[in-house]
């Protein structure tokens, strides 16, 4: 594989070339995935230095162990798994984001009293304001780790349920359930925050 554009070559072929010792294949994988690995690590850790370090470790790990990858098509999910594990390791060490108690899969989410409060008609200037983004970010970070990771991978990074399931060693239904409950909690937090604006609208001066 030369210097020409190789975007269309499937990962599996690039990985096979890497296994055969082609340095261009390695460079191509770095080109394809360094940003994704960095973003995922950065959004999970919220630490740019840690994200760079994790990115480096992840590539060192996967390239040194690439021969152990049985199915070449699973390269990206493997990469995401190594990345999330490294990010978890960092978070444990730093004790970031508070209590990481395991979540009870059976607990039903109690809808908050705000359920009839429709804030979707608020203008973008409020919905997308600096403050509302900060509130949402803080809300995501306050989720139990198992939900937080899934919400970041799915709704922030745009990975598929299948990719997340494989990366985290979960079933797809388990991913969906964590995602759904995480989103419901975030929705309630946003409902609470936006209430001050909808109240203004309900009772014009």
């Amino acid at each position: 594989m030369g210097k020409k554009r190789t975007e269309r070559v499937p990962d599996a072929s690039v990985v096979r070339a890497l296994k055969n010792g082609d340095p261009h294949a390695m460079e191509e994988l770095v080109r394809r995935y360094s940003n994704k690995v960095y973003n995922l690590a950065y959004h999970l850790t919220r630490d740019a230095n840690a994200a760079e370090e994790i990115m480096q470790d992840v590539f060192l790990t996967v390239i040194s162990k690439v021969d152990t990858l049985a199915n070449d098509a699973f390269f990206s999910t493997w990469l995401y798994r190594v990345t999330t594990n490294a990010a978890y390791g960092f978070l444990r060490k730093e004790r970031k984001f508070g209590d990481q108690t395991a979540i009870d899969e059976e607990t039903e989410h109690e809808p908050s009293a705000d359920y009839l409060h429709d804030w979707t008609k608020l203008p973008d200037s409020i919905l997308l304001s600096e403050e509302s983004r900060r509130i949402l970010k803080e809300s995501i970070d306050s989720l139990p780790e198992a939900m937080r990771t899934v919400v970041i991978m799915k709704d922030v990074e745009g990975l598929s349920n299948e990719e997340i399931a494989q990366a985290l060693g979960l079933s797809v239904p388990a991913v969906k359930s964590r995602l759904h409950r995480g989103r419901l909690i975030l929705r309630d937090m946003l409902s609470g925050y936006f209430r001050k604006y909808t109240l203004e609208g309900d009772h014009p001066a």
Binding site: N39, M55, H117, I140, D155, G158, R183
Partner: peptide
């Protein structure tokens, strides 16, 4: 509100470029 929450989450982070 659920759907809008998901949409807002997708915009909460600027993509960080390495």
């Amino acid at each position: 509100t659920y759907r809008l929450t998901v949409m807002l989450s997708s915009k909460v982070e600027q993509p960080a470029a390495v």
